[in-house]
Design a binder for these strands. Structure first.
Lengths: 209, 209
DNA sequence: GCCTAGTTACACAGGTCTGTGTACCTATTT
DNA sequence: AAATAGGTACACAGACCTGTGTAACTAGGC
């Protein structure tokens, strides 16, 4: 077990466990003892891989910062698909809001946390902006910001309410904003909207991914 | 100082200080010693007014739960005014997001915290809904939810970015959604929009309340 | 078979936290 | 002036936290 891959495997395992606990229970709420115990390793081993809890927190946030991957779907599908993907994530019982927003809320004025959180939010806004530019939208900057507001708004609302329908509401608002900007949103989205209304009449939205 | 008003005055002072510290630094980050020291009273006095920190947290959230007061302004002015008011609050340096969302993010699955947070969010949504009904909007329920998304989205974005312009972006999106729902939004809002663009060219948005 | 890197068990330092116990003080009321 | 309500000072219990020190163990590479 002294091989290099084994070492990185252990580090990954620590990080993965820290990620899960930090995200689900809050960063301050989880001690390093808890993380080590969860894996079944000694606290000493944990500190052999990460010099401090702060380092572990940084690694946690860095790990969460995944750049949106390239897609062969159309820009419009990618934009609207964001909200479908959100709805799916909201429906999972281990969804607990945006880790960056939560970290800023919890850790307050910590500089490095703020920095990575801002970078993350901005990267997502730019992702929207580039897609909007591909669609020929005139004021792509402003619309990208507005779409980002809808994303974060639905996340915050779902965090409190546990209601995946917040993602659908955001998608419908996004559709209106896109149409208003001259984007032709096809009948597919409209059909989704109709289907949603029907489903709502009969009960929970949860069953739908 | 043994009079009844003095007693409630002390209780208010404790609560007020707890509110400020909890909100600015986070609930877990602030100990009861810190609160007592800030006021200049002994910890014993604090515990004579609140049986536990949990009770203080509950009182803090209850205090933040203020029902939106009645207004003689038009429903449309009230709706759009929400976003102006947000922009003003974002510009204050002591704004640190929504206390309810932050509490849920920090305290996780605490039942009572979740309960009051849900109640708060729903009360605001209903406030929007009633104003929309007064405006004759057809699907007031859905639009109220969408406006609430914009409010919470701008709050989350400002928490991370410290950028009051997020409130303006939300207001512009809200204007589009309202127009799409058949509401006539007058030139006042449009003028605001034009003025904003001009301002933006010359620099910071902060100076404007 | 030996070396070495990694892990383990465990104690402990030093700090913070919530909450309590106790004896004393002070101001108002009667 | 005495009684009473409330505040103060201060020690302390008991829990939890981060981080370190140390000696022993274990498995792979030579």
């Amino acid at each position: 077990m002294a091989t290099l891959p084994a070492k990185t495997a252990m580090k990954d395992r620590i990080l993965q466990t820290a990620d899960r606990l930090f995200y689900l229970q809050g960063i301050r709420a989880v001690g390093v003892d808890t993380i080590a115990a969860e894996i079944g390793i000694s606290k000493r081993t944990l500190y052999n891989h990460f010099p401090s809890k702060d380092a572990l927190i940084s690694a946690y946030l860095a790990r969460r910062f995944v750049a949106p991957r390239a897609s062969d779907k159309s820009p419009l599908e990618q934009i609207l698909g964001t909200f479908d993907s959100l709805e799916r994530r909201f429906s999972a019982k281990d969804f607990r809001g945006c880790p960056f927003v939560n970290a800023v809320a919890e850790l307050g004025e910590d500089r490095s946390v703020r920095k990575v959180a801002v970078a993350f939010k901005e990267s997502r806004r730019l992702w929207f902006r580039d897609l909007l530019l591909q669609l020929g939208v005139k004021d792509a900057e402003a619309l990208a910001t507005q779409l980002a507001l809808l994303v974060d708004g639905s996340i915050a609302q779902d965090l409190v309410r546990n209601d995946p329908a917040m993602a659908r509401a955001a998608k419908e608002a996004a559709t209106v904003l896109l149409r208003n900007a001259g984007v032709k949103v096809g009948r597919a989205a409209a059909a989704n909207k109709r289907a949603a209304k029907k489903r709502q009449r009969y009960g929970s939205l949860r069953s739908q991914g």
